[in-house]
């Protein structure tokens, strides 16, 4: 992996993000009704409206507004929330931390469970265990998050004797156990689809690798089966799994919107739904941009990990 490769990839990410800022700005500006109308309500007089528009700078040409907005964003200033009366960066910052930690818990759990599961299915190919893992992965991919979440609530959060809380949040700094307790159901919901994807991918790669020449050679050399699997087969099956994980970050970020809304988790997703319902444009812009940045960066990291895991990968 060369430095030029890294710089080139970073450059591509920056170009994409620049396009995203234009898209976000364009979409939020074609939304019916501007910020001034949102603040004053439907019954505002035209005089009040134009006065506030001038005050907020909405009467300037769109290009000037765009440059102004991007300039602010680059300094970490996303403007003021129209509804909450707080700087957007402050509102969004806390939510971002809560979302990332929830996604992190889900992703860690998934990786720890799904990779061995997929490997097991490949090793025990054609057995009942393989069939069950396969069935699980198909059912998992076909359940939208809101269905999984609702079913989990029905089973584990019955009001009479709840095993887990039906929603809410405890700051980890106050009570880490309580925090994990509240994160359990949302994290499982988020993880299910990913677990299905990743275990299926690892299984298909692993079964290919297990029938390859170098694994046969390792076996003929007289290496133990454990060593063949752990040292030879599994590492070579992981690069595609990482590729799938990086694609799944997209699902994860989409899923988090629904899951946070259902479980009342105070993250970006819940904030986004609130902002969309209330047409809080600066908040919508900030969250969309942040999610796009997270998505782009995680794809970049995944590419680098793949290049590291698989020496054959030399991107042009």
């Amino acid at each position: 992996m060369t430095v030029t490769y890294l710089i080139r990839r970073l450059g591509a990410v920056l170009v994409v993000l620049a396009i995203v800022t234009v898209a976000v700005f364009a979409i939020t500006n074609v939304l019916p009704g501007n910020a001034a109308l949102m603040i004053l309500g439907e019954n505002a007089t035209p005089e009040n409206l134009s006065a506030l528009e001038r005050q907020l700078g909405l009467d300037r040409p769109l290009l000037v507004q765009y440059v102004d907005w991007v300039g602010g964003v680059l300094h970490g200033d996303f403007g003021m929330s129209l509804r909450l009366g707080l700087p957007v960066s402050q509102v969004v910052g806390d939510a971002l931390v809560n979302s990332l930690s929830l996604a992190g818990i889900a992703l860690a759990g998934v990786t720890v469970i799904a990779i061995p599961l997929g490997a097991l299915a490949a090793i025990r190919r054609g057995t009942l265990a393989d069939a069950l893992i396969g069935l699980f992965s198909y059912v998992g991919t076909a359940l939208p998050e809101f269905v999984t979440a609702t079913l989990l609530l029905v089973f584990f959060a019955r009001p009479e004797n709840p095993l887990f809380p039906a929603g809410g949040f405890v700051p980890p700094s106050e009570d880490f156990g309580g925090y994990l307790y509240h994160a359990a159901l949302p994290a499982v919901t988020l993880g299910l689809i990913l677990m299905a994807h990743i275990s299926r991918q690892v299984r298909s790669e692993m079964s290919e690798v297990l029938s390859s020449d170098y694994v046969r050679a390792a076996r003929l050399k007289g290496l133990g089966e454990g060593r063949v699997i752990w040292r030879h087969a599994l590492p070579n099956s992981l690069a595609p799994a990482v590729a799938v994980i990086s694609l799944d970050i997209g699902y994860l970020l989409g899923g988090i919107i629904v899951v946070e809304e259902i479980f009342a988790w105070p993250g970006l997703g819940r904030l986004l739904i609130y902002a969309l319902q209330n047409r809080d444009l600066p908040v919508i812009q900030a969250i969309t941009l942040i999610l796009a940045v997270v998505y782009a960066l995680s794809n970049l990291v995944a590419d680098l990990v793949i290049a590291k895991l698989d020496p054959r990968v030399r991107y042009a």
């Binding site: 994409v16 898209a23 939304l31 019916p32 997209g250 970020l253 986004l272 969309t288 999610l291």
Partner: peptide
Amino acid sequence: MRILDGMLAMPELLFTLLIVTF
């Protein structure tokens, strides 16, 4: 392709939500 990359840079559900809101 550059324009498509920009559109793909947003998670699918987020993109759909923005359009539906619009």
